[in-house]
Design a protein around this nucleic acid. Structure first.
Lengths: 345, 345
DNA sequence: CTGAAAGCGCTAACAT
DNA sequence: ATGTTAGCGCTTTCAG
């Protein structure tokens, strides 16, 4: 039997050395030209370009980064790759980072603290120059070291404890207030709340907004109309079903997240209740298909793309000026009235 | 005014050199231990571990990769970060790659050929060890160089032209056939098709499946009941609305993608038609919220996660055995009957 | 305007 | 079982 060797020719990637030989200059010159530092005659510049093309040369980022101790890699960690709220944010981040010549390295923490820690580690050993992340945990300790390090970091959507970090968040309380107030103005008096877990800051804030809206309107709170579970569809389904099955049921329900609202809608339908005639629904967070739902869902919309964009800009600014003071950006929500709350069109 | 210096101490990341000094051994030993190559006494092993912890050492991947000429970075390119079909695939990929100790580098081509080319370039200069991608273009030329290179690549969901590439695709034609046949067996005779663009292979295949199902059942095709547009929700809305507004309208509509089905559902609702009583609906591709829709949508489900998993496995196998022959995996769809096609529950 | 040379932090022979 | 050494491919002084 013939000995088995690697089939294809070893055709390694061309190095800067080969380009330089090809162009009859030194590697230093090639490096300079490639870095766009000018200071080279038209002629050499030309020859180098040609050589690069002919050889199909591509800069080896490992070597380059190692030597220059710089990187244009920005780490992005989100809790769920499948949640359009998060991917929408990533879209916004990409938009501005790409424009600025940075590359994003996306990691998925799967809402798991250990997993998140591992990804964070990985990103750092990848020598990213900055980090954008949506924390999976509310415990500040988990991120204390991040703040201590010199890596520029901005937290998105939620800021655990009182961490000294740049951040971009959403005015959840004001948003919920706005949504519930709209319901009240539309004439509803008996308004329920189906919320996410109280441990999650954004859910708590939305709950507060709900309560404040009711109280401001002189309506009193009914514990039996206030439920909280997880941010899953199933939880929304069960909580809503239970709430609407009571003898004295609310005429409107404010639901704390989009996914939960899906479940709520299912519950309402299953109970044979008409939306919005028998029960109005208002969700939090908008999705491309909210308008395609049946009925089209009214929501308090978060400026998803803008959240990402702002966070990226914050990071870019800090990259330029590391000594900047800490900045917290709070973005406002938009009320999107469709048909599920009885006041649409 | 005092001169302004960088505020924090320069606190650079510790290098392997420092760890080695700290532990009183050579860098080689540290490197070996860290690589888990054994061959070190318990004692040193212990001391090294301690040193690593104390210093908070993290291996510099650039240096490591540069030296060893290896990488465990796998590039993944998808056309749309916001499309749950694609992110679902990424989820599957992650699952197996993570398990195998690889890191994924996700890039977004935004369905733009130029952008895709740029991302592909970037990934290669990042020295990835393999590539998984969902092509944005159907033109084989755009990817010819990818096949020629020695980089292991697997194409997902669609394979441009007759490219010599490992691939994982879905049995679109069979899936559509299955879905439409179900409609026929449920008693529908007048079945319309609202499809994606004919230029896209998957749409074409689904159209073929639709036609074959009708013909096999002895039903004849009506051009006025067959529409194709884009894979956007808006397109589904318009096409469906137009089709159902005709005097002689179909009693069931097979819709070529999930997003399009959303639009179709909206059109049907706007027309005041009851689903499934007046018109049945069957979509292609399943989503977490399909069941939460109103009515719950019946669909031909693609094994999203499995697609990702298989692709990743294919890549892993090729990484081990680069000389393997080219393999094309075709995955089957599942019929998920819910209420929109009148035969559910 | 260009080149020589010195590493960045790490790994892998090769010694011991 | 551990240390020595020679680079990986690139950037960046420092000289010319």
């Amino acid at each position: 039997m013939s000995s088995h060797k690697r089939a294809s020719s070893p055709k390694r990637k061309p190095t800067i050395r080969e380009v330089s030989r090809h162009a009859g200059v030194s590697t230093a010159t090639v490096s300079r030209v490639l870095a766009g530092l000018g200071g080279a005659s038209e002629a050499t510049q030309q020859r180098i370009e040609t050589a690069v093309k002919e050889l199909g040369y591509q800069r080896n980022r490992m070597a380059s980064g190692l030597r220059s101790q710089r990187s244009t890699l920005v780490g992005v960690v989100i809790p769920d790759l499948q949640n359009p709220f998060f991917t929408g944010i990533v879209g916004g981040i990409e938009e501005v980072l790409h424009e600025a010549g940075y590359t994003i390295f996306l990691a998925n923490s799967a809402s798991d603290v250990d997993r998140e820690r591992a990804e964070l580690q990985m990103l750092q050993s990848e020598r990213i120059c900055g980090l954008l992340f949506i924390p999976s945990s509310a415990s500040a300790e988990a991120y204390q070291d991040l703040c201590d390090g010199e890596l520029p970091v901005v937290a998105i959507d939620r800021v655990p404890g009182g961490l000294a970090l740049d951040s971009v968040t959403v005015a959840n309380e004001a948003g919920a207030f706005q949504g519930v107030t709209h319901l009240i103005e539309a004439g509803y008096r008996k308004i329920g709340l189906v919320n996410g877990p109280d441990e999650i800051v954004v859910a708590r804030e939305r709950g507060t907004g709900y309560r404040r809206a009711l109280q401001d309107a002189g309506l009193k709170l009914r514990p039996s109309w206030m439920a909280s579970g997880s941010f899953q569809s199933e939880s929304g389904y069960e909580l809503t079903k239970a709430m609407l099955s009571k003898k004295n049921r609310p005429e409107a329900v404010f639901v704390g997240s989009f996914v939960t609202a899906l479940g709520a809608l299912r519950a309402v339908t299953e109970l044979g209740l008409k939306v919005p005639d028998e029960v109005a629904l208002m969700g939090f967070d908008d999705m491309p298909w909210a308008a395609a739902m049946n009925p089209p869902l009214s929501v308090v919309a978060q400026p998803v793309r803008e959240i990402g964009r702002s966070a990226a800009k914050l990071l870019l600014e800090r990259l330029e000026a590391p000594d900047l003071g800490i900045r917290s950006l709070v973005l406002n929500t938009d009320l999107v009235v469709r048909e599920s709350c009885g006041t649409g069109v």
